[in-house]
C-alpha cells in the first residue's frame, strides 16, 4: 500500500515541487497551506508522515508540531521539518518539540527521500 505524506507549506510552489517529487517516488500526497489546516488534516487524513514548514502565518510550524504531538490521536505520527531556517538553534528546538528530522531548504531530493524512507522504514 502507498504511504501517505502530508505536506504543510504556505508557499504553493514549494508544495507543488515537493508533491511532484514525492508522487514520482510512489507516495500518496495531501497538502495544507498553514499550520492550523496542517493540524486539522493530520487529524482527518492520518498520514504516515507530515512534512512541515516552520515559518508560516498564523499557527507556525513549531506550534502545529506541538498540537500534533500533544493530541493522543496524532502523537505517534512522525513529523519532519522542512524549512529555510537551518540554524543549530532551530534544529534543537524542533527536536525538543518532537520532530523526527530536519530538512533544510534548498534540499537535495535524494537526501530528502532518503530521510523520509528512513523514518517510514520503507
Amino acid at each position: 500500500m502507498k504511504k501517505k505524506i502530508l505536506v504543510v507549506d504556505d508557499e504553493t510552489y514549494i508544495s507543488l515541487m515537493v508533491s511532484g517529487r514525492l508522487k514520482a517516488n510512489g507516495f500518496e500526497v495531501v497538502t495544507a497551506n498553514d499550520g492550523q489546516m496542517g493540524y486539522e488534516k493530520t487529524l482527518a487524513e492520518k498520514p504516515d508522515l507530515v512534512l512541515l514548514d516552520i515559518m508560516m502565518p498564523g499557527v507556525d510550524g513549531y506550534e502545529c508540531l506541538r498540537m500534533i504531538k500533544t493530541n493522543a490521536e496524532t502523537a505517534a505520527i512522525p513529523v519532519m521539518m522542512l524549512s529555510a531556517k537551518a540554524q543549530q538553534a532551530d534544529l534543537a528546538k524542533a527536536r525538543e518539540v518532537g520532530a523526527s528530522g530536519f530538512i533544510t531548504k534548498p534540499f537535495k531530493a535524494d537526501e530528502m527521500l532518503a530521510q523520509i524512507r528512513e523514518v517510514l522504514a520503507v
Binding site: Y13, I14, M17, R21, A24, A84, K105, P106, F107, A109
Partner: peptide, 22 residues
C-alpha cells in the same frame, strides 16, 4: 537569506525534476 532560500528551493527542485527525467 531566509527570503532567498524559498525561491532557491523552487528553482533547484524545478531544475532537478527536469534533470531527473520526472
Amino acid at each position: 537569506s531566509h527570503e532567498l532560500r524559498t525561491p532557491m528551493t523552487i528553482v533547484r527542485e524545478g531544475v532537478s525534476q527536469v534533470l531527473d527525467g520526472i
